[in-house]
Structures are given as C-alpha cells and as structure tokens.
Design a protein around this nucleic acid. Structure first.
Lengths: 211, 211, 211, 211
DNA sequence: AATGAATGAGACTTCATTCAT
DNA sequence: CATGAATGAAGTCTCATTCAT
C-alpha cells in the first residue's frame, strides 16, 4: 500500500508528558547497553525495546530509527568525553597540562571504551554521524590550537608549526593510540608506559622542556 | 599471514583450470570496485557477480562468502601499501628517511583511499579481519622500531623512549591524520602543509636535527 | 541499515529460463485468483505466493510489488476485454452493430466481473494504473468515434454532435450501467431488459433507425 | 436513510454538551479536509485529530473508526449533492429541465470533486457504504423515473422504454462522464461542449424535441 | 564449472485501538 | 471529557545461501 509521506511525521517528537519523558530515557539507556553488548550493526530494535521493557512499537513513538537513538546516545557520550575535568591548577606548565589532559582523556576513554568502539564503527558508514563527529572534533581541536597559539606567543613552542594542524596531528596520535590499544586490542602495553610515551612524544614534538 | 591466503582456507577450492583462474580474478577485481563504490555493508553478492559478468551462483564457486573475497582484496591492498618503495638513498639522514616514508605512505593512501575507508569499516566489526590487520601493523611497527633502535644505538634519538611504543604512537599519528583528512573529509588542509607538519612533529618528537 | 539504491534492481526482470517463465506464469495466475477472491486491498503477497505454491521470496524474484503483478494481470484482462469478437457480418446496419457490440461487451464483463471490480478499485488510488486505463479507454473510444464519423459521412447520424465526446458519453453509459448492475449489485434487473434499454437509448441518441 | 445517521449507531454517544458538539464538528470538518488531501486509504486517525487540533484519543470519543467519520462526511455530501436547486421554472419544457438538471449536477460535482473521488474509492471496498450509496441512487433514480413516466403519459417520450432502466442508464452516462473527466482526468474537454453533448444525447435518447 | 531460480528466516515499520492519568 | 502514551499483530521486503539443470 503506497503511503508516500507519513514517515517523517512519527517518532522523535519530544514527549509531552512526564511519563513519556521517562519512557524515552529508558529507551536511551537500554539502547546504550545493547549497543555496547552487540555493536551497532547487530543491535535490533527488538533488543532495545525488550531491554527497556516497553512494547516494540513504543520505540517508534520516540525514535524513527536505530540511527536516531544512536545519535542521542552519542551526543551524551560526547558531552561526557569533553566535559572539562578540573585543570591541573593555575600555575601548571604546558608539559604538566598536556600530561594531565592525556591522563584525563585516557580515563574517559577507558570508562566509555565500548561506546567509543561503536562510535568509530558508525562513523565508517553514516555520513550524518561523520558530520556530527567532525563538529565535535573541530571544537576540541580549536581548544588545543588556542593553547598552542598562546604558548607560541609566550615563546614556549616554536612558531614554525601551524597550531591547527599540530593540534590535529597530536590529537590523532593520542586518539588512535588509545583506540588501537583499548578497542582493537593491539597487544595491550602497560597503560602507564603508553601514556608516558605519548606525553614525552607530545612534549618533544612541541619542543617543550621536560618540566 | 601466508601469501595468497584465502584460496585454500576461506575461498572455494583453488581454481584448477586456466578459465577458472580468470573468473576468480574477475570476481576479485569486481569486488574491489563494488566495495569502493558502496562500502562493505551495502555490497551484495549480486552486485559483485553482475560487475564481474558471471552468474550469481558462480560467486560461490570461488568464495564462500562476502567476507572471503574481502579478505582477498584486502590482502592485495596491504601488499601494495607496504611494498617498499625505493628508499631515499643509502646515505640519507633519519629526518630524510622519515620525510620520504611519510610522503610515500601518503601517496599510497591517496591511491587507495576508497579501500582504506572500507578496511577501517570492516575492522570495526570483523574480528578475524582485526587480527589480520594487527599482524600487518605489527610487521610495519617492528620495522620502524628496528630503525629507532638503530638510531638510539647511534645516539641520534634519546634512548629514554620505548622504540616499540614510539613506533606505534607515531604510526598512529600518521595513519589517523591521513584517515581523518582523506577518508573522513576533515576540512581538507593543503596536503603539503599537513605533511610538513607531520614531518616536523615526528622529527622533533624524536629529537632529531632538522637535517 | 541504510541501503539507498538496490530496490530498483530486483524483481520484474523477464525470466531467463523456461523454468523461470513457468514460475512467473504461476504467480500471475495465482494473483488473479486471489485478487478476485479478496480484492486488491486485502490481498497479501503471502496469499499469492501460497496459491502459486512458491516460496514467499520467489514472488519478489519476478515482481517488485503487489501493484506490479496487478498491472500484469490487468494488462491481460484488457487484452481479452478488447479482443474484437467476430463482427455481426459485413452488411450489418449501425443499429445491429451497436446491439452486437453491447452484447459482446456485456458477456465479456460478466465473464470477468470480479476483475472488473478490482480494476475499478485500483483505479481510484493508483495514478499509474489510471494512466494505463486512460490509454486503453482512449483506444476504444477512438474506434467508436471512427465509426461515428463514418456514419456521419454517410448521413446516418446527425453531424451536430462531436464524435469523440459522443463516443465517450455512450461508452460511459454502457460501462457504468454494467458496473452498477454487475459489480455494485444495483437491484439486478433482467439482463435482457437492461441490454435492450441500452441498445434503444444508444440508437435513439444517435438518431438511428430501429433497423 | 435516516437523517444524521451515524451519530447513534455508528458514532460514539451523541455529544451531550455544547463543547462536545463543537469538537465533533471540528473532527468532521477536519476529516473531510484530510480525506480530500490524501484519499480515504492514506488518511490516518492521527491526521484527522491533528487537523482538528484535538488529542489523538479524542477522536475515539466521537467516532469508533475512520469509516464512521467517513459516513458522516459522505452523508452531508450526499445531502448537498441532491439538494434540489431551484428548478428551471414552472412552464419549462423537458429539454429545458434536462439541460438545467445536468448543469446543476455538474456544478455540484465540480464543487465537490475531491470528495466524489473518495466516495467512489470507498464504494469499491466497503459494502456498508455501497448500500448507503445504492439508497441514494435509488432515490434519485426514482425521481427521474417519475418524470419520465409523466412525460410518457403526456406523449412526449416513447413508452416502449422502461422508465426505471432508462433513468438509470442516463444517470450512469452523466455520472460516469463527469467522473472520468473531473476525477480521472480523462483528457479534459471543454466543459461546455461536454455538457452540450450530454444534453443532446439525453434529449435524443428520449426522442424529445430540441426545444 | 556455470547458471540463475528458489528458499525462508529475519528485521523493519505502521497504526488502529486501548488505557492510564 | 480530554489527553497522549502504550501496545503488538500484521505485513513488507531483503538477501545469503542452496539447489536443480
């Protein structure tokens, strides 16, 4: 039976009642659990609904598709991954700041390892999600680039490197190192030694003094 | 990883006739094309068979599954990605060698961009493929680590860093920077400036002189 | 899982083997039976497949949708409805010809009553089918208009009426009278009396002599 | 058919409060709009409720089903379609009366074109609605038959035709001609020429003088 | 070997209707 | 009465794999 429109009208509206809001939350929580257990591809709407203890159809009251819940889950993940932990204190040196940031990121990564894996997975085939991630990355890169520029102004970092590209490359190094270790299970090294190496390489790449 | 794997364990029987060998090749070539066009997930056996201009059923004469052809395609890709280009000459400095290697890798990446994207995709959900990739990465890392160890022995690189971990981190930086730029379309910078940045950061991370 | 294309690639290709052609025929015959028994709307692909004694999926090997088989069934119906029965003989008068044509059409209508009902049903919501029907009607109207023009030239029919519009109006009268009687069950009159009335009205509307 | 049917048998309870009556009216008006826009089959209860600006559940306070509102809407449509416009004046000739009636009907048809299409649609699958329509048609036919009988008594129309069947056939001609033109979009002729043709054919079919 | 038809389990989505608040 | 969330049966379509020729 031809329908035509109609598909855009359902799902994804914000719930109007308290009860609806609760159901929606249950679905998001359930979705995250199931995604972590089975990955995005092997997750079925039925799994999510069952885990949330709602009827199959209720999923579609709140989300038009698996992708849609995933976006919601990922949004919250990104928020938590980039929520600024307390800095290392006002007078900290660049080297200390880098060290601190790397540790904090690594801890967040470990805390959310399963989801980080799924995020990477979805990014390989969903363009819309790629875009979302690009934006998040851009924000984070901009922050680092800002710091680099400050350090260059203060003569702490050589100014023959582009702060943007440098921020990107270093972020790529940290990110992917953690990914290969934590997600892809690349011959897990001792966490401490990996982090120390990353700190040292970053520090030297920026020609920063050890302390 | 044994050469030409897949033909005895994963694929159908090895082709006995000349004609069979040709059909098999057609299928592999067709598979690569279709994978590049649609990604792994959206590729159907039917697409591959049609592109290869063989009957649907003939696919299964040579490969037991989509994964199996993919392994074959990826195998060849890895071979070409890691085929040592001519080195930069016998007397080249470490900085020159790094620069040369980065350029060569980037060129190979660009040449195979589409497949590199698919490789990343499949690595997110296929354990067997993850393993294959791990092995390739290990080989490549070992090579770099070997060079680092030599340079440390020669006093060119500080020996307070672990050559293994360092090789990994630097490879992660290069690899992921290229991935984000070429595959994920992160706000494409000028290739030259990106490469220069990567060279410089690598060089400084290893505390190598500019020339 | 997003697919995108792919849906246009399947179903509806002409079968390449004898066996395929047979299956296709079985499906068309089964479809007509089921349509007649349940109407278009209440027919399920499952019904058709079951009736044809093929697997559910086999339906989609030959047709992309319920609409598609319906078109095929309707096409054949139209062919049979408009296949020219033997005319009433060379020297027949216009009145005789009209009488003959009306009877023949009525017989065909009765023979295909169930399908004629479904045809009317589908025409109320499927634009593509409306178009198909328009074409068939146009052909048939053109034939009648041609005869009218000839009779006007011969001075048998007043030439103050437009042959096209007249053909249409008279066809509408016959068609809809049969539809209301046979399909909608309007207080079934004796067939003979209805046909006589239609003959007479047609004849008088064209100002033709009784014989 | 009892006036305002549907409110006691088919609908919910008759509304007791003023406010309830208003809500009911809003739903009927909304239903007609949506039916006209999407047809009966593609109309969802949700569409009607949204258009009427009432809650989803409120629909069921007043109507037990989509069919029920439709009956109500159709009831009103039939009332307006058959509301006798002012006749052509006391001393009008049969030809003038026919001409007048055809024009009036055509105007009403054009005014309600969208709904007439839906009515035809629903009549193809809803038996209860078929019955309702049959009754309306019978009333209308009886009226025409009555006039024909009078004209036969007055010697204006040949009495070898059955007034009932004649009324039916002529009504079918008018009705279906308008339907094919207005609803099915059959190659729209100029309205005037179509009406003239219908008038002339009707007049001649009844062997009435031009004036 | 090659061909292409056959199979059917599996996942998605819709929506009329009921129900709790 | 009004509201909007909850339910789940029903139907659609896909496609990897098997099989007959």
């Amino acid at each position: 039976m031809p329908e035509g429109a109609g598909s855009t009208e359902r799902g994804g509206r914000p719930p109007l009642t308290e009860r609806g809001a609760r159901t929606r939350e249950k679905l998001i929580a359930a979705a995250r659990e199931v995604f972590e257990e089975r990955g995005f591809l092997d997750t079925r709407i039925a799994h999510i609904a069952r885990r949330a203890e709602v009827a199959y159809g209720s999923f579609y009251t709140y989300f038009p598709s698996k992708e849609a819940v995933f976006f919601e889950v990922a949004d919250r993940l990104f928020a938590e991954m980039t929520s600024r932990a307390d800095g290392p204190g006002a007078g900290a040196s660049p080297a200390e700041r880098i060290r601190h940031a790397n540790r904090a990121y690594c801890e967040a990564y470990l805390r959310n390892a399963k989801m980080m894996a799924i995020v990477e997975q979805v990014a390989t085939f969903n363009e819309e999600f790629q875009e979302l991630r690009r934006e998040h990355r851009a924000t984070s890169i901009a922050r680092t680039a800002h710091a680099l520029r400050r350090w260059q102004r203060d003569g702490l970092v050589p100014d023959d490197v582009d702060p943007e590209l440098t921020a990107r490359a270093l972020a790529a190094m940290i990110d992917h190192s953690l990914y290969l270790w934590i997600v892809q299970g690349d011959d897990p090294p001792a966490a401490e030694r990996l982090l120390d190496t990353l700190d040292t390489l970053t520090r030297r790449a920026l020609a920063l003094p050890a302390e």
